[in-house]
């Protein structure tokens, strides 16, 4: 319910800003290309040693020290159940600045920053993604490429990510 509401709000927002283009950071997870609002991105850094957390799902890699604060790291490839999730010198982490927290997301590769006009953004399809439809705000089309635009804020604060305190035990 909650996540749905966030997604709807995000869609509304994207419609509201008709006329103004929005910028997205694009990254790759396997063969699919995704985009997140550039304003949510704090920095991009290489994948570092993480400290594992007990009793956490596999996609929560652990925590890192980001200049003195403890930041959790999520592997989006594992979260989206991609076949391969390898860690090498090209593996990067997008540090996201969400409304109340900072989270690191591991992706295969960061591509570029793309500005999308409102007419380049389409409503998300009903099915076919590995991601819960609730967290897709739309599809962006750039020339021959298709971008899946993520509601990263909603995704990261959703219950299934287990990043936020569970309310009821």
């Amino acid at each position: 319910m909650h996540a749905q509401a966030i997604a709807e709000r995000a869609i509304e927002e994207s419609h509201d800003k008709s006329g103004a283009s929005r910028e997205f950071l694009t990254f790759a997870l396997g063969d699919e290309e995704y985009g997140v609002d550039i304003l949510k991105v704090k920095e991009i850094r290489g994948y570092d040693i993480v400290t594992r957390i007990p009793d956490a799902p596999a996609f929560i890699k652990g925590v890192i020290n980001l200049r003195g604060t403890i930041v959790p790291v999520i592997d989006l490839r594992l979260k989206f159940k991609l076949a391969k999730a390898e860690y090498d010198e090209f593996t990067v982490m997008i540090v996201l600045n969400l409304s109340d927290r900072v989270v690191g997301a591991v992706v295969d590769r960061v591509s570029d920053v793309i500005a999308l006009q409102p007419d380049q953004i389409f409503d998300p399809p009903e099915f076919g993604q590995t991601v819960d439809i609730a967290f897709i705000t739309g599809l962006g089309s750039v020339e021959e490429r298709m971008l899946i635009l993520l509601d990263i804020e909603g995704l990261m604060s959703s219950r299934e990510m287990q990043l936020v305190q569970r309310l009821a035990q």
Binding site: T51, V63, G68, T69, I70
Partner: peptide
């Protein structure tokens, strides 16, 4: 002592985290 719940949540059995001399996080 650093809080885990600033950006994350409380974890059972873990009181917090600290940063070691080499910059790594220790629970």
């Amino acid at each position: 002592v650093k809080s885990l719940s600033t950006n994350f949540r409380r974890i059972e059995g873990i009181a917090g985290a600290t940063i070691l001399g080499d910059g790594r996080v220790a629970l």
